[in-house]
Amino acid sequence: MYATPSMPTPYVPTFTGLRLNCFDPQTEQIHLIDIARGLSRTPRFAGQCKADYSVGQHALLVEQIAFRSLPAPRPEFLMGALLRCAHQAYMGGMVGPVKAAVDQLAPGALGQVIAKLSCAIERRFRLHLDMAEVVLINVAEREALRCERDDLGVDPDGCWPELHRTLRPMGIKRIEPLPADEVFQRFVNRAMAIMGDAL
């Protein structure tokens, strides 16, 4: 996984037996099962909340909110929402303050890795979103964060003032953290329901 004299390019070995090159990710190195496996076992908020809550369950929540934002959403839009944080399946979750610290030490480096991974994932699943859809996914992400703050006991001191202007979306039930295996299966099932044979 790490660069060494014998392995100059960093690879991430995956659950399905693939190897993902973080510096030059290719579509054939990306598999839905690996994304579902990684996200279902990656803790949201670095695990610093009152229950075991994964990035995978967060992704399902973002897609659920995005689904309600349009009367007839395109499958590509819903898949884009579901895969909003898919790069974390390979990189792990990194909280905002740590991202900022890393960026100070190596300006732009982390962003480049995330961008390359995200672009490869978009190519793999043939996601072509317009700007309006990207904006709606970002809104869904923020609304999901509002739900998580309310239901999971994160941000007790109000470090996210922007959430004061974000309303909880209608019809979203209180979050009940799910076991990793259930999140994994729900993620795979939802992706298949959205894209079908296109996967």
Rank of each mutant, 00 (worst) to 15 (best):
F23N: 11
Q26P: 07
T27S: 15
T27N: 09
E28A: 10
E28G: 06
E28F: 08
Q29N: 08
I30Y: 00
I30A: 01
L32F: 09
I33V: 12
D34S: 10
D34Y: 09
A36G: 10
R37P: 00
G38I: 00
L39Q: 04
S40K: 01
R41Y: 03
T42D: 00
T42P: 03
P43C: 06
P43L: 06
P43V: 05
R44P: 00
R44I: 01
R44N: 11
F45L: 00
F45Q: 07
A46E: 13
G47C: 03
K50Y: 03
A51I: 11
S54E: 07
G56C: 04
Q57W: 02
Q57N: 04
H58S: 07
V62Y: 00
Q64V: 00
A66Q: 01
S69I: 05
P71A: 06
A72L: 08
P73S: 08
R74H: 13
R74Q: 10
P75W: 04
E76W: 06
F77K: 02
L78Q: 07
M79A: 08
G80Y: 02
G80H: 05
G80K: 06
L83E: 07
A86Q: 02
A86T: 10
H87Y: 07
H87K: 09
H87S: 04
Q88H: 13
M91E: 11
G93T: 06
M94F: 01
M94W: 05
V95C: 04
V95S: 12
V95E: 12
V95T: 14
G96A: 13
V98E: 12
V98I: 14
K99C: 07
K99E: 08
A100Q: 14
A101W: 10
A101L: 15
V102F: 11
D103V: 07
D103G: 14
Q104D: 13
L105N: 03
A106P: 09
P107A: 13
P107V: 12
L110R: 10
G111C: 05
G111F: 05
Q112I: 13
Q112C: 10
V113E: 09
V113Y: 09
I114Y: 12
I114T: 12
A115R: 13
K116I: 00
K116R: 15
I121V: 08
I121N: 04
E122T: 13
R124N: 03
R124K: 13
R126L: 06
R126W: 01
R126S: 12
R126T: 09
L129H: 10
D130T: 14
D130H: 14
D130V: 15
M131S: 12
M131F: 11
M131N: 15
A132Q: 15
E133C: 02
V134K: 07
V135P: 08
V135F: 11
L136D: 04
I137M: 01
I137Q: 03
N138A: 14
V139E: 15
V139F: 04
V139L: 10
A140K: 03
A140F: 02
E141Y: 14
